[in-house]
Amino acid sequence: MEHMEQYSITIDGRTLTAWEGQTIMEAAHDAGIYVPHLCYLRGLVPFGSCRVCTVKADGRFVSACTQPVTPKMTIENDSEELLDLRRSLIEMLFVEGNHFCMFCEKSGNCELQAIAYRLGISAPRHDYQFPERRLDASHPDIFLDMNRCILCARCVRASRDLDGKGCFDFVGRGRGRRIAVNAEARLSDTVVDVTDEAIDVCPVGAILKKRVGFKVPIGRRTYDLEPIGSDLEARRRPRAAAPTGGAS
């Protein structure tokens, strides 16, 4: 293993050891500190688009998933200012899509919903936009519901980097930006398969495996018993034994 420097950093006043090349997110997670996030997923190249992981590093707002640690870096994660910023970001994601948790099969397993619960959001402060979004049910085993897409690009990165297929990508700009499939029109015209990593990484109910629906009863879904991030916090260790990831 290439020699890597150890850095001492602090997160919310807690001193911990990070490794050269790690992002703030990786260092925090290694230490059992939860930084809320949506577009970030361990194993995928950081994208930095959702900004939900925004922290203050040495007084500057940065996204924890893309910002490498530096020696003696002082990081604010769990402050009211940052929590309110994250709430606002999550609320904007809710109002700019059509998120009807009451009949969404991802409910209870949805990271967007789980973060909203963890942050104590009861209703968004912004007006709902009720955009027109499309459905794509053409694939025999996969259902796309763009009403729920939050443009996190997990599917784009997973299909390109893990599956080696590039079935998903962005088209359009600004408010018109959306996920498209790598075909003339329909998902069934791509080479995507239901076993692809890209199908499993969606944090919301935009990419679904058909006919799964509500097979898991209420009470046994991922976030029914404990808030999102609890599993990470449960394995909090005093010091990181070995580095994880490393921004490359």
Binding site: R211, V212, G213, F214
Partner: peptide, 14 residues
């Protein structure tokens, strides 16, 4: 209309 069929028992009960 347009929604996947397995949603119906949860959707229409609303």
């Amino acid at each position: 209309q347009g929604r996947p069929y397995w949603e119906m028992p949860v959707l229409v009960q609303r």
